[in-house]
Amino acid sequence: MRLHYPTNVKIAKIPCTGRVDNLLILKAFESGVDGVYLAGCLEGECHFLEGNLRARKRVEYVKSLLDEVGLGGARLEMYNMSSAQGQRFAEVAREMTEKIRALGPSPVRKKVKG
């Protein structure tokens, strides 16, 4: 297909979005990223049955944490797509990039002390 998507999107591969822990998302923000999105399988089609549904719940929770600390929960999103939907993958990458660009750079960029 040779689809293009924005080069600012860095992919972290995980076996299932159900593996994504709250802290993992927070650590990404601590490392200075402007936004994070999870690309899980379509709902109802999780190989592990509920991994993507659990991920969505965690995303909602971490959004509330990001609101609390003042970063804004809008910097985090959950998307669902199948591995056959390359077109959708590229579309989401563009959509999220535009959304984060509109929000501006993360206010904590490069400021978090380890």
Binding site: D21, L23, L26, E30, L65, G70, L71, K111, V112
Partner: peptide, 23 residues
């Protein structure tokens, strides 16, 4: 330990955003 990690992360993000020194 996990909740300590989450709260610590929240505090670090907040302090970085607010420009507050917090170790």
């Amino acid at each position: 330990e996990r909740e300590v990690g989450v709260l610590a992360s929240e505090l670090r993000l907040w302090s970085a955003k607010e420009g507050q020194e917090l170790e």
